[in-house]
Design a protein around this nucleic acid. Sequence first.
DNA 1: GGTTCCAGATACCGATAGTATGTAATATAA
DNA 2: TTATATTACATACTATCGGTATCTGGAACC
Lengths: 201, 201
Amino acid sequence: METEREKSRREEYSEATRQALLAAARQLFAAQGYHATGIEAVAQAARVTRGALYHHFDDKKALFDAVVVQLQAGAAQAVARRARAEPDKWRRLHVGTEAYLEACLDPAYRWLVIQEAPAILGRKRYQEIDEAYPLGLLIATLMSLRRDGELTFDDPDLLSRMLAAMICEVAQLLADSETPQTLKPRVAEALERILRAFRRS
Amino acid sequence: METEREKSRREEYSEATRQALLAAARQLFAAQGYHATGIEAVAQAARVTRGALYHHFDDKKALFDAVVVQLQAGAAQAVARRARAEPDKWRRLHVGTEAYLEACLDPAYRWLVIQEAPAILGRKRYQEIDEAYPLGLLIATLMSLRRDGELTFDDPDLLSRMLAAMICEVAQLLADSETPQTLKPRVAEALERILRAFRRS
DNA sequence: GGTTCCAGATACCGATAGTATGTAATATAA
DNA sequence: TTATATTACATACTATCGGTATCTGGAACC
């Protein structure tokens, strides 16, 4: 914890408008996509002018970046909350992937984080954020399993990315599916089998 | 084959400029990305004016769409060429995934088809193209294996998408990797194991 | 109580996608 | 052969939008 210096009224207001801008941006970007959303519209939705927006964020990309960070942080928190409860590591992995899959079902997450973010922020920056949040959790879990000799594969980093890619893809399918309730168990089975392929037998 | 009606000189010229526009677009989009590339630049590179471009393509997105179709067709052709030679179906699958992975290593393919296309064309249209070309091959192969009772999983469509997603992700990793020669065998092993998890034992 | 500083507003610029219209060349029909 | 229709392409213009430079009012601080 950093020393909680008393915030001035000004700083409070400033922070509040920053949050309002973030919320407006998330909402509009998710609803219409990044390029279809004008900076002007975001500012209006947050009830400020474009000047205020440019005071808080360097440019449109920086605003989008902040939205993505926020979404990734939220997803990671949701996953961690559920996984922490599990004592067994394989169970933790299982619960974690399921929780992440659930997080991916949020339309805003799918559209902004999975679809648009890599192209807009660039793969490098995208991976930075991903590793700092949800992907980082997965990597850590797999590395831990590897240390215990429970994972029969030498590259947890590679494996985690492959798993994450699959989960994202599957989330899109589930979201687009007209019969998700029949698709869901198949997805679970496939993931189960794949994980087993890397588990010490 | 449709009846090869004699082409007039005009039609030949027209087709040639269309191809020139496509080639210029592919080159520039791949080099700088979709949004960073102006319509004007594409027209100039093809040595025509923007008017000509808008004559051949409805808008910028349609131009991009055509480029993506061309790239996907090329990839599918490369995969089919290599896979057709194999008599055994599992071998065919193996060779096919490897060939597709190789196709994904083309920077233009990675950037335009994998990264930008879903966001720009929309997931629906993207899947249409994908299913018509490389993904379609994979689905067909898996369905054939399923019919033979060789595949112990009920949803070849789902599985093929999961595999394709992984391969795309892995291609990005290989491309970014500083030591692809050490990464490659690990990738091969992982894919091998995953396929085995769905193979009749 | 005057000065500094900063959140936010206003006004402007440049780039670019898209449109409306014009033109010259070729195909087609009388 | 001449007249008409069609087509490929060019030119000029508009609207939108991201970004910047400049300004202002009020809170914090000496």
